[in-house]
Simulated assay, not measured.
Amino acid sequence: MDARTLFITGASSGIGAATARAAIAQGWQVGLFARSEDKLHALASELGAAAHPLVGDVTDLDSQRAAMAALVARTGRLDAAFANAGTGLSAAGTEAGDPEEWERMIRINVLGVLWTVKAAMPYLRERRGHLLLTGSAAGRRHIAGSVYGASKWFVHGYGGNLSDEMKAFGGRCTVIAPGMVDTPFFAEPKPDKLQPEDVAQAALHALEADPRCAINEIFLMPTQ
C-alpha cells in the first residue's frame, strides 16, 4: 500500500482514538495498539479498513515488536509511531504515594515509551520516520512531590535526546505536551478543558509538517 502508516499506543480511547480518527481522515493507515480488545475492535469497525486493531501490552517489548511486525506485514511500511499510552496515580506526593502504583506507572509512562521507540526505530530509520511522544504540562514545571510529573519530565528529556539521535538518518521526534485534557484519565468530566481532538490536531500538525521542519515540541493549554 502507498498510504503512510502510523502506530499508536493507548489507541482505544481518548487522545489515541482521536489521533487515529484524525490520521485516517488525512489518508494514513493506523495501527491501533491497546489491551482492550473490545474497544479496539469497536473503534476499528468505526474507522474502516484503514484501521488495524493490534491487541497487546505496552509494558511488554515483545508484544510491541510483534504488533508492529504484524502492522508492517499488512501495510508494507511504518512511517510514524505515537508513544501515547500513559497513566496517573490515585495518591499524590511522595509521603502519601503508593510504591506499587509508582511501579505500575513507571512501567507504562517510562518503560512503555522506551519499548515503543525501541520496537519502532528500525522501521523509522528505513523511512526517515517520525516519533510522537505524549508529554504533559506536568513535565514542564515543578509540582510539589509529583511522581507522575517526574515521569513526564523523563518523556520531555528523552524526546529531546531522540530528536538529536534521529537527525542522523533524517528522522524527527515531537513531544506533544497538553495541559488538562477531558479524557477517561480523570474520574470526572472536564468539559471546559482541552478535548482529545485538540491534541490530535497538534499531533497531525507535527506529522504533516514539511520534512525540512522538525517540530520538537507542541505545548497546548486550555484557555480556561
Rank of each mutant, 00 (worst) to 15 (best):
A73Y: 06
L124Y: 03
D192F: 06
A150M: 10
R104T: 10
M1C: 12
L207Y: 07
L162C: 06
G112H: 10
P184F: 06
S12I: 01
A20E: 09
P196I: 11
N216W: 07
C173M: 01
I215D: 12
A49Y: 02
A81P: 07
P222T: 06
S13P: 01
A50C: 02
R127M: 04
A202D: 11
R77N: 13
D57E: 15
G86A: 14
P196C: 06
S12T: 01
N216G: 13
A168D: 11
A206V: 13
A44L: 05
F82G: 04
A168T: 15
L194I: 03
A42G: 02
Q64V: 15
L89N: 02
E101L: 00
V30F: 02
A3W: 07
A25E: 14
L133G: 13
H130A: 11
A214I: 11
S90V: 04
M180Q: 11
V72Q: 07
G145Y: 07
F169D: 07
R128K: 12
A20R: 04
V110H: 06
S36L: 01
H156R: 12
R141Q: 15
G139L: 10
I106E: 11
T174W: 00
D164W: 11
N109L: 02
N216M: 10
F169T: 07
A34Q: 02
L89F: 05
L131V: 15
S146V: 02
D198S: 08
Y123C: 00
Y123K: 01
L61R: 13
A81K: 05
A91W: 03
G48Y: 00
S13G: 01
I106S: 11
P178R: 04
A34W: 03
T59W: 02
A50R: 09
M166T: 15
D2T: 14
A200D: 11
F186R: 02
L124I: 07
K152V: 08
T223R: 12
G149T: 09
P189H: 10
V55I: 14
G93S: 08
A203F: 05
P178A: 09
T174P: 01
T19C: 07
G171N: 12
D192T: 13
A177K: 08
A22M: 02
G179F: 00
G171A: 12
E197L: 10
L6Q: 07
A81T: 14
R35E: 04
G93P: 07
V199T: 05
T87I: 13
A203Q: 04
S151L: 05
A80E: 01
Q201W: 08
R74I: 09
K39W: 03
G149S: 13
W115N: 14
A138Q: 13
T19G: 05
T134S: 05
M180Y: 09
L6C: 09
Y148H: 11
F185Y: 14
D38N: 08
A206E: 12
A91K: 15
A203Y: 05
A206N: 13
D192H: 09
L114I: 15
